[in-house]
């Protein structure tokens, strides 16, 4: 223990003259890197961050992500600079262990601890507030709000589209067009859309990537998510909740098209599918498997029949 024993006359001397101003150096490095990397990210990478800007929620979620990165980068840099600096500057000498600072002052430092707690608390509380603001101002940010959404868009016209998940495909029903069902998601541009996501069997998750919509498809639950489309393009839909054997292959594609094209497509499809639509269960928010039918048929959940007039008025059962 002799060569590790503290030499009390040694440490203070070193601190008095030869000691560089570690904190000043670290802060300088940190500030420099943060000031370079933050704008670099925000302006160069930021606009390309998923999920893009196709819809209002996508735009806001991208903005949210970028803000988080802008805050996270300096935090990451601060810790990494500190770690790197420590590793470079404060290595043990090859021969013997010299005396680092010890004693009570090395154990606690009220200022540092208080500052740490204050800074992390401020960041965290800010992020929680910011996240809440973004969540509410974007009407749920494109996430599934359940059967009784509390943050609803104020748009005069909302197009409801029902998304039905089943093993292992998504289909879409358009209640305002006679409830026809398609395998391809077609969405008009510049329109506020309410996705009513439900499932016929197990839990799926409807993830329209470019639309920035994600809502779990639960059997007998009408999970509503809102967004407003900004510009046209193609959309990838994937299932993001493990739903069994072919979960990995459960994806399809959709299009955001012009209002007129949508109108044309919808009315044409409604007409073309009319004979098929008749065979489907009548449109409902949710469907219950027919437990008695050997044919695996489905009947609509009679608890809350669909009425286009009261769009989000009546309370629906919250499973």
């Amino acid at each position: 223990m002799s060569d590790t024993a503290p030499r009390p006359d040694d440490a203070p001397v070193a601190a008095a003259d030869g000691e560089p101003r570690h904190f000043a150096r670290m802060i300088a490095i940190w500030l420099m890197l943060s000031l370079i990397l933050d704008p670099l990210f925000y302006f160069l990478v930021g606009p390309h961050v998923p999920p893009g800007t196709m819809t209002s929620t996508a735009e806001e979620n991208q903005f949210d992500f970028n803000i988080l990165i802008v805050i996270a980068l300096p935090v990451l840099i601060a810790v990494w600079v500190y770690l790197g600096y420590s590793i470079v500057m404060w290595r043990a000498p090859k021969s013997g262990v010299a005396d680092p600072v010890g004693g009570e002052t090395a154990r606690t430092h009220l200022g540092v601890q208080a500052a740490w707690i204050a800074i992390t608390s401020v960041i965290v509380l800010f992020l929680a507030g910011f996240g809440t603001f973004e969540l509410i101002s974007t009407n749920g940010a494109g996430g599934g709000e359940g059967p009784n959404p509390i943050w609803t868009p104020t748009a005069a016209h909302i197009l409801p589209i029902q998304v039905i998940g089943q093993q292992w495909a998504f289909t879409y029903r358009y209640p305002t067009f006679g409830g026809f069902e398609t395998k391809q998601l077609m969405v008009p541009v510049d329109t506020t859309i309410a996705f009513h996501v439900t499932s016929l069997d197990v839990i799926h998750s409807f993830w329209a990537y470019q639309l920035s919509i994600k809502a779990d498809a639960n059997p007998q639950v009408d999970n509503v998510a809102f967004t407003t489309t900004n510009h046209t393009g193609s959309v990838t839909v994937r299932c993001s909740e493990l739903c069994g054997l072919w979960h990995g292959a459960m994806f399809n594609y959709g299009q955001v098209i012009s209002k007129q094209a949508f109108e044309n497509w919808a009315t044409a499809t409604e007409k073309a599918n009319a004979s098929n639509t008749k065979l489907l269960p009548p449109f409902a928010w949710t469907y219950v498997p027919d437990a008695n039918g050997a044919d695996g048929g489905y009947y609509n959940d009679t608890v809350v029949p669909y009425s286009p007039s009261e769009v989000y008025g009546a309370k629906q059962p919250a499973s």
């Binding site: 998923p50 929620t57 949210d64 996270a72 935090v75 996240g131 494109g142 996430g143 998750s205 993830w207």
Partner: peptide, 19 residues
Amino acid sequence: GVTGVFLSDVPVNVTVHGG
């Protein structure tokens, strides 16, 4: 830990949840 904060943010969670 930092990515955990991203996940806890509901709007960002829409993109990153389940992925």
